[in-house]
Design a protein around this nucleic acid. Structure first.
Lengths: 294, 294
DNA sequence: AATAATTATATATTATATTTATAATTTAAT
DNA sequence: ATTAAATTATAAATATAATATATAATTATT
């Protein structure tokens, strides 16, 4: 096990060819340098310097050791550079977890812009359930998580509201309710195309019916993804209750129309989660590319 | 400038996956390790470890740093090995200086044997004047010097007598004095083939004549190398006064004959010189292959 | 709930590196 | 030849840093 502190001082002495100059460069006193080099010589059992006039000369062993020390401290500088790149967020990994809504409608644009600015950062983007996103954060397998719907959280995480998306009722453009104002009681007379059990939209809608003391709507269809849902409603079957983000494109294109349900105004909260410790630079930089929350 | 001490402890922690095990391995207490790692985290501004149950987990930055640290400490072991080879005398350089007599008649056999045992040592063998041999020692451009003739020396060098070679008078095999006993006074009536001015044999012979209060011999021929000298005498011209080592082969072959000069018994001392500090292992090992002095 | 294992923290102690002052050596200058 | 300047070496005192001890806090295991 080499004495790397003493070796560092020796490295400077070898480079400068002088104990005094090395001490100046190191901002320590000359005797401190002499003493460390004597110590290194004792530890190695090799003479490294020999006096030459007023000054010193490297012995053969000294020259060889200096060459090796040069390699070692070059590697050290290399590592420092790597660390600095990492700290600056110019290298390393960016670990993002998200649920399907932000993963599909909000983040892709941000990730693309981020990658253009930080091409050397390896981006790992995981779409998963909100519960698993939390786990990834805790296990350091994600640095930030974007979670839509239910406000999942955890005591050792920091969470904040990010975007509040409106919930929309949508229907086929030729339906009599298309673009009409009406009430929830009217809407649930129509067959409803639902997402899977436990999904935020489904739970919210059922809760709203209970609140209004209405009969629960009949589950006309149950579908697993938002695009399947939209396709079915576009084909003319029933009403869908979903995030504006999911439906906006179809509505703007005119394939679907909203129903303006006056007595229901629900939103789908999307939140941002991270560990309590300081955010890694990669994630911090990424957030610069993410549209600000409301 | 990395804190290489703390980095070393961190390296062990990363390798063991445990602060406690690393402390055991390092033979220091567990809090010493924890404290150094906290210090490193502060210095780098990066979290390296995070608690995981009872135990720790490397952060992303920790994993990256551990990989870099692995490279650095592997290089350290490499250097240690190089140093050890050097200390054992299995690598490095062997720097020998010698004057022509040991360089030609004594050392070549030793160097050959040494090289067979230590093929990885670079041998540098310089034939030069005795004064320059001393300089090479002082400038660390030689580790040992074999000097024939005048007993050169220097206060900061250790010198010791090594071999005492006899001085011989030799002459052509058909000469009337060939293999005869006689006196110096008789010999110097013959023409003498001399080496260059200042050479040991020439000075010694002239001093001997003065001591015996004889007229100085006439310089029949002056030659610069011993082989030229021998060739001339072999061809039948005059008497040569030289080291037994130089003449032995020719005498044994019968081309030359000695003259046994009863009132002159001179020797050519060959001495061994080194700096006062410990001899490098390469030179120490080499001396094992050198025939012991008288 | 109790125990064992592990890391974290606080304080005291020890070890180590550094400074200050000065000596010794050598070169260069007068 | 003396003197002055530059450099490294040495010794003692000081400052800094690393470590040990004791204990707390956390978590997994029984």
């Amino acid at each position: 096990m080499l004495n790397l502190h003493a070796l560092r001082l020796f490295h400077h002495v070898a480079e400068q060819g002088s104990v005094t100059k090395a001490a100046d460069q190191l901002n320590i006193s000359q005797p401190a340098v002499t003493s460390q080099i004597k110590k290194l010589e004792r530890e190695l059992g090799l003479p490294l310097l020999s006096p030459l006039g007023r000054g010193i000369l490297l012995t053969e062993a000294g020259k060889r050791l200096a060459a090796e020390a040069g390699r070692l401290f070059a590697l050290e500088r290399n590592i420092e550079q790597t660390i600095d790149d990492y700290i600056q967020g110019n290298a390393g990994r960016l670990l993002i977890a998200a649920t399907y809504l932000p993963a599909n409608f909000l983040l892709p644009a941000s990730i693309a812009k981020y990658k253009q600015h930080y091409p050397n950062v390896e981006v790992q983007f995981t779409t998963t359930s909100s519960a698993n996103a939390i786990n990834l954060l805790l296990r350091y397998e994600a640095d930030i998580a974007f979670i839509g719907g239910a406000r999942q959280s955890h005591p050792s995480l920091d969470s904040k509201q990010w975007i509040e998306d409106e919930m929309w009722f949508v229907i086929h453009k030729n339906h009599r309710l298309a673009s009409q104002e009406t009430l929830l009681a009217e809407v649930i007379k129509e067959p409803i195309a639902f997402r899977e059990k436990g999904s935020y939209s489904r739970e919210q809608l059922l809760a709203m019916c209970q609140l209004h003391r209405l009969e629960l709507p009949k589950v006309g269809l149950q579908l697993n993804g938002f695009s399947e849902l939209i396709r079915v409603v576009s084909e003319g079957y029933g009403v869908a209750f979903l995030s504006a983000l999911e439906a906006r494109e179809e509505v703007e294109r005119g394939d679907l129309r909203r129903i303006y349900v006056k007595d229901v105004r629900l939103t789908n909260p999307i939140s941002l989660h991270q560990r309590k410790e300081a955010l890694p630079a990669q994630a911090r930089r990424f957030l610069d590319f993410v549209p600000a929350g409301l």
